[in-house]
């Protein structure tokens, strides 16, 4: 899929662990893992909003389009 998830990069920049983020945004670690690994087929606006709020970033910092 040409949509790349840069959640790992943002987590490293903010020095936050996956478990901590999952607790903050209220999703399971397995779902966060699906998102991080790029296996997710869709992301809800509510989840994206929660991630952006928790990591203090913009959606473009997490999602990236790469033409393959």
């Amino acid at each position: 899929m040409p949509i790349i998830i840069n959640l790992d990069v943002m987590l490293a920049k903010r020095k936050i662990r996956s478990k901590e983020l999952s607790e903050r945004i209220g999703i399971t670690t397995s779902n966060l893992s699906i998102l991080k690994s790029g296996k997710a087929k869709a992301i809800r606006f509510s989840t994206l909003e929660a991630i952006c709020k928790a990591l203090e970033c913009q959606p473009k910092d997490i999602l990236e389009y790469r033409d393959s």
Binding site: N31, L32, I34, L35, K39, A40, K41, A42, R44
Partner: peptide
């Protein structure tokens, strides 16, 4: 179903 399950 798969798409629904893989929606985060």
């Amino acid at each position: 179903k798969e798409e629904n399950e893989l929606t985060v």
